[in-house]
Amino acid sequence: MAFQILLNFFLAFIWMFLSNDYSSLAFFKGYFFGGLIMFALRRFFDHRFYLINVIAVLKLFFIFCSELVKANIAVLKVILSPRLSMRPGIFALETELEKDWEITVLSNLITLTPGTLVIEVSEDNKTLYIHAMDIDDVEQARLDIKNTFEKAIKEVSR
């Protein structure tokens, strides 16, 4: 992916040299046309076209923001309820992610989701131990993590 971005920059500079115009407008024009050329020639790269990855990263960022707001509303409800009726506990979650940065992003996301906080990642990077504020909806939380977060992270790293 980094190679494709670099190539696109390179094409933009070639456009600037060809048109003998060294303004930022010329750079953006060159970047745009270079992107089109790279899209046309995408089957020669060994990864997919990099704009799809960029869109996936943006999606992940939006998930981060919306989860942060949701988590705060959930915590707010627990704190301001008159009686403490929650049932905290620690549960284990198997993860399919392998690379270090993926697991870091996943545990940051889990920390920001409603009522969950990562305590420990096991030695072999396969299990996350998560402290949940309300253990009753663990299965729900597990499904959420599996379906939305892991999927979004995989989408970025593919």
Binding site: L68, V75, V78, I79, L84, P88, T111, L117, H131, M133
Partner: peptide, 23 residues
């Protein structure tokens, strides 16, 4: 801050502190 005072143990307090304070 209310959560840190009111919740019962370290872990649940940490929930309140690390989420609400961030936002």
């Amino acid at each position: 801050a209310i959560g840190v005072v009111r919740l019962p143990d370290t872990y649940t307090r940490n929930h309140a502190a690390s989420k609400s304070a961030t936002l």
